[in-house]
Amino acid sequence: MADGDTVRELYEGCYRRLVGQLFAICGNLGEAEDAVQEAFVRAVEKPRRFEQLENPEAWLRAVALNAVRRRYRRATRFHGLLSRAGVPETTVTGMSADRVALVEALRQLPFEQREAIVLHHIVDLPVREIAVQLRVPEGTVKARLARGRVRLAPLVHEFADDAEEVNHV
C-alpha cells in the first residue's frame, strides 16, 4: 500500500481545501465531496502510481475534476440540453446571499469557463499549467478566463476591470 501515512496526511491536510475548490466548479457540496473522496480512494487503490507523483495534491485535484467533468457531461446529455446550469443544487448551510449569488453566477458559466476561473483564481495555477492540465492551448485558457471574468465582474471586484474593458470596446 502507498505509505498509508502519506495519503492520510494528505487527506487531513488538503481534503477540505480540495472540496472547497471543487465546490466552486460544480456548485454542489455533495458532488464536490464525492469527487474528492473518489480521488482519495483511487490514491489508496493504486499505491504505486501515487507514490511516484511529484505533486500528489495536484493529482488528487485532477482526478476529482475529471469526476466532476464526467458527471457534468453525462448530465447534459441525459437532459438533452447544453445546460449551463449544471447540477441543480447549491446547498451549503449558512451561506450569505452574496455567496449564493456568486455560486449561482459560477453555475451559469459554461463548464469550461468555470474550470478555468477556479483553477486560476482559486487554485492559483498559471495559465500554462491550466493549459497542460486541461489539454487545450494557452490561448483557449486565456479566452475562457476573459469571458468568465466578464460575466462574474458584477460579483467579483477584482474582475471589474474586465467588464470595463468590454464596455469600452
Binding site: 498509508g4 495519503v7 492520510r8 487527506y11 487531513e12 481534503y15 477540505r16 481545501r17 472540496v19 472547497g20 475548490q21 465546490f23 466552486a24 457540496l29 464536490a32 465531496e33 473522496q37 482519495f40 480512494v41 489508496v44 451549503v92 448551510t93 449558512g94 451561506m95 452574496d98 455567496r99 456568486l102 455560486v103 476561473i117 477556479v118 483564481h121 482559486i122 462574474l152 460579483l155 467579483v156 471586484h157 477584482e158
Partner: peptide, 24 residues
C-alpha cells in the same frame, strides 16, 4: 482575499470529512 477565494474558504469551513479509514 477575492470573493472567489472567500467562497472556497467558507465552504472548507463547513466540510466534515469522513474518517480516512472509510476511504482507505
Amino acid at each position: 482575499m477575492s470573493e472567489l477565494k472567500e467562497l472556497s474558504w467558507d465552504v472548507q469551513e463547513t466540510v466534515q470529512p469522513l474518517p480516512f479509514e472509510a476511504l482507505e
